[in-house]
């Protein structure tokens, strides 16, 4: 038995599933499985702790990285003969954020360089449109870039999650994202789905958690440390998320937005989109 920590939603999806699950990607530190329309990861301590994964404590996956088969039985994921059992629930929700005093996140030079380089890879109008809350940005960004989590999706996820944190509605963009999820990889579509629900990486949550201190003028070092940690995530994923977060702040500070009456009401159920 391999104990794992997971978000309640991953546990519940496993409980509802049964039978073989295909392995869509495997590496030393992470394994990704297709659970219907959802990409569920098994991540070791050395991997990025995506909000749709079972996290195990070991530094890498060891023999699990080489599994031949995966299946779900009685709500438990089995990798060959090893049962990966959820023994702890992790909170992947983005911290609540008071939108009223929101200000742009200052960047130290290193982070600014990385974020600048990432922005240069994207079509110029995309960020401008996104900062204006224009859903036309979505088609320019979804699936844009290489790898399992294309850069354009990271930017969108960072943007969506900050709106979720501050309780600000962005129905036009959110609807567009839901419509276009099929244009990107399964993992990336899952992460966008997570962002729509306000589910984020711990490093992203840490930046949001550090914002109030920064806004109050007391927590600048804590924010800088959190920003540095976020930028280190993945190849460009962390920088993309940060760029999305900053673009969201531009959006929220430049125009009036109406708060959501029910934070989850605009999010379609997880079964609602093809991947």
């Amino acid at each position: 038995m391999v104990p794992a920590a997971a978000p309640a939603r991953v546990r519940d999806r496993l409980a509802a599933a049964s039978g073989p699950v295909p392995v869509v990607h495997r590496g030393l530190h992470a394994l990704y499985l297709r659970l219907d329309d959802l990409c569920v990861g098994v991540t070791a301590a050395g991997a990025t702790s995506v909000p749709c994964a079972l996290r195990v404590a070991s530094p890498d996956l060891g023999p699990l990285a080489a599994v031949r088969s995966a299946r779900v039985a009685d709500g438990v994921l089995h990798l060959d003969d090893s049962a990966v059992v959820v023994r702890r629930l992790v909170d992947v929700s983005v911290p609540r954020l008071d939108p009223a005093p929101l200000r742009q996140v200052p960047l130290a030079r290193g982070a600014a360089d990385v974020v600048g380089a990432v922005a240069a890879e994207l079509p110029a109008p995309a960020l401008r449109l996104l900062a204006a809350g224009d859903p036309a940005a979505v088609l320019l960004l979804v699936g844009r870039g290489s790898g399992l989590t294309p850069l354009g999706d990271d930017v969108l996820a960072g943007w969506l999650a900050l709106h979720r944190a501050s309780g600000a509605a962005a129905p036009a963009v959110e609807d567009a994202v839901v419509r276009h999820l099929g244009r990107t990889t399964l993992l990336s579509a899952t992460l966008l789905d997570c962002a729509l629900r306000g589910e984020v990486l711990p490093q992203y949550a840490a930046v949001v958690r550090a914002l109030p201190g920064h806004l109050a003028g007391t927590g600048r070092p804590a924010l800088q440390a959190a920003v540095t940690d976020l930028v280190r995530v993945g190849h460009t994923s962390g920088a993309g998320l940060l760029l999305g977060l900053r673009t969201a702040i531009d959006h929220l500070t430049n125009q009036h937005t109406s708060p959501l009456t029910s934070p989850r009401s605009l999010v379609p159920s997880h079964g609602g989109h093809a991947a």
Partner: peptide
Amino acid sequence: LGFANVVEP
């Protein structure tokens, strides 16, 4: 930690 229950966030 110690004798503790599994709780939802």
